[in-house]
Write a protein that binds this DNA or RNA. Structure first.
Length: 619
DNA sequence: CTTCTCACG
DNA sequence: ACGTACGTGAGAAGT
């Protein structure tokens, strides 16, 4: 056994590294003495819970740490069964746990590699990542502390708390490792590695009570904290289930996209462009080919983005000819090469890289990522797969004998806006199950309302939710500014409650230290220069909480085993073909509710085995 | 590390 | 009085 000690925030701490099997009884005695909440953390080979251990042929969990405010233990799980069993016993026997991002990372890692299920972990855990996001959801660049342990510890515990993440990276580098290779490569008994591992649980154990006290001081309801832990468990369960990669199709797609890229990049090169990702070089070559470029980026450079390229190709975004000019072959090649390259690297490569031994990808769902509380999904970013073309979604499959189900909320943000701002005429429209944009168009143009009117007022309605101005809406819709201005004025007359609520929410935020309190009691800090964003924050965050509540209802209805992904206003599920209709109906039922007198409704779709089947694929 | 670009809701 | 589209993840290039 090796001992460590130090002092943080004026309070000493001691740490113990178990080196031999004979040290384990002392650890287990300590475990049995713990009455309060114990912090749990793991040091692993990396982030790839589901594929890394197999690829490297090693124990994924290297070190497992447990600690309270003053004492911490490090168990070298990778050394073998007795150590693994001690960590497992501790996880099972400890009465209450905390940890930083522990549910979606350490919880899933324990589920996969330590013989302790996610359910057991979740039944007694409080995650300080969740408490930190409820205190302030902003990343550091937006003025918040950010969720990392270091700034949290520095602010809430001790300004001189060491930056264990940054410090470890530097230590890795000094030993000849990189940030990535260090996790797997460092000696399990390296003193600094172990000391930082011990410090992490000491800090985590101290962070929880301070966070909880702060949440109480700020009046954040306990119910919101419980609600977020339920959502975290539900989403981690979806990650664990994963989605099957159609390996044969995906490898074929890799080759297709690669060939597409090669072919088009050769054409691009023949115009003297060496780097496809260099807007400078592309702009120069286009100018030399006789084109005129007028649009500029925020930084003042010539813009050569997708819309500019499509225009030069004489195509719309569905790749249909516009018929206004002769297509520029360089623009066509750049467009195709960039698309093939992005789709291959961002999606296809990631699927093949992240696949586990059985061919499943287990994406990481960050349940409170955005400052509005919205979720994000990484490794792979499956919330952003191309939807106009089915080829990427075609890579992901339900299990044999199953089919995909997708259920969407109908116009959720407009409904949430009507509910939160108490917009009388909108509420009437939704009560009658009207299409809100047709409704608005008919209010203005009567029976003469056309698709053109609907589109115009849809743009304005969305602009309201986002807080957009005349210029942007005009650019976005292609309509003249005067037209758009008139439509906005009309909209404001029809639905005066929107501006009224916006002003009220802004005023209240000022009184509340520039924080908007959402309908569910979430704290949403505003930027002083963009207070108009309060309408968007209120709507986006309430829409997210409607989704969250529906997920909790789905779990209660026994539907969790079918769920695979939350996508902002949509839920993706897989079910045996004999049950799809019933599962779709039950999910839809959970997504149907009342929000302050506004009916929230949903529509479902049933496909075949691949996700792409919902986008036109025939399998 | 910042900028640009592009994929989504 | 004025004027503001919101929120993400990811890769490549250039500083």
């Amino acid at each position: 056994m090796k001992e460590f000690s130090g002092s943080l925030g004026g309070l000493p701490w001691r740490g113990y590294l178990v080196e031999r099997v004979e040290d384990l009884p002392k650890f287990l005695e300590w475990v049995r003495r713990q009455r309060g909440t114990t912090c749990f953390d793991t040091e692993t080979l990396g982030l790839g819970i589901y594929h890394q251990a197999r690829k490297m042929g090693r124990s994924f969990v290297r070190l497992s740490q447990f600690g309270n405010a003053t004492e911490a233990w490090a168990i070298p799980v990778e050394l073998g069964r007795p150590f693994y069993h001690a960590a497992r016993t501790a996880l099972i026997e400890l009465p209450a746990l905390t940890g930083h991002n522990m549910i979606s990372f350490d919880g899933l890692a324990s589920d996969k590699h330590l013989g302790v299920s996610l359910e057991v972990i979740c039944s007694k855990s409080t995650d300080t990542m969740i408490t930190s996001k409820l205190l302030d959801p902003r990343p550091p660049e937006a003025g918040g502390l950010g969720p990392k342990l270091k700034p949290q510890a520095a602010f809430y515990i001790d300004p001189s708390a060491p930056d264990t993440q940054d410090g470890l990276t530097k230590h890795f580098n000094s030993l000849g490792f990189t940030k990535e290779t260090g996790w797997a490569g460092i000696d399990i008994f390296d003193p600094l590695y172990v000391e930082y591992a011990l410090l992490d649980v000491i800090l985590g154990a101290r962070l929880l009570p301070v966070h909880l006290a702060e949440l109480e001081r700020l009046g954040v309801r306990k119910e919101l904290l419980d609600y977020e832990h339920e959502i975290s468990r539900i989403c981690a369960t979806m990650s664990r289930a994963g989605m099957l990669v159609d390996k044969e199709y995906t490898e074929g797609l890799y080759d297709t996209l690669d060939a597409d890229y090669q072919r088009n990049f050769e054409i691009v090169q023949s115009y003297g462009v060496l780097k496809l990702g260099s807007p400078d070089q592309i702009a120069k070559a286009l100018l030399e080919s006789g084109e005129e470029l007028t649009e500029r980026t925020d930084a003042g450079n010539l813009k050569v983005d997708k819309s500019v390229l499509l225009h030069l190709c004489d195509r719309n975004d569905k790749w249909e000819r516009i018929g206004g000019r002769t297509p520029n072959p360089l623009a066509e090649a750049v467009y195709h090469a960039k698309r093939a390259s992005k789709w291959r690297t961002a999606y296809v490569d990631t699927f093949l890289e992240e696949m586990d031994e059985d061919g499943y990808v287990h994406c990481n769902i960050n349940t409170l990522q955005a400052r509005t509380g919205r979720m994000s999904v990484t490794r792979a970013a499956v919330q952003t797969l191309p939807s106009r073309d089915m080829m990427i979604r075609r890579c992901l499959l339900a299990d044999p004998g199953e089919a995909v189900i997708s259920v969407d909320f109908s116009a959720i943000e407009m409904r949430v806006l009507a509910a939160l701002a108490d917009v009388r005429r909108m509420k009437e429209a939704f009560a009658n199950d009207e299409d809100i944009h047709w409704f608005t168009a008919r209010l203005v143009a009567g029976e003469d309302a056309t698709e053109y009117h609907r589109k115009k007022y849809k743009t304005v309605g969305l602009g309201k939710v986002y807080g957009g101005g005349v210029t942007t809406l005009a650019r976005q819709s292609g309509a003249p500014e005067a037209d758009v201005q008139h439509a906005i004025n009309t909209y404001n007359r029809l639905y005066p409650e929107i501006s009224r609520s916006s002003k009220k929410w802004t005023r209240q935020a000022y009184q509340n230290g520039m924080v908007h309190i959402s309908a569910t009691g979430r704290r949403l800090p505003l930027d002083r220069k963009r207070t108009y964003a309060v309408v968007n924050y209120a709507c986006q965050s309430a829409a997210r909480d409607v989704l969250g509540q529906s997920l909790i209802d789905m779990d209660a209805a026994g539907l969790l085993p079918y769920l695979r992904l939350p996508i902002h206003d949509e839920v993706l599920a897989f079910a045996p073909t004999g049950e799809v209709e019933e599962v779709e109906r039950e999910i839809r039922k959970c997504m149907t509710m009342d929000l302050f007198g506004v009916p929230i409704t949903a529509e479902g779709e049933i496909g075949k085995r691949s996700w792409g089947s919902l986008y036109g694929a025939d399998f």
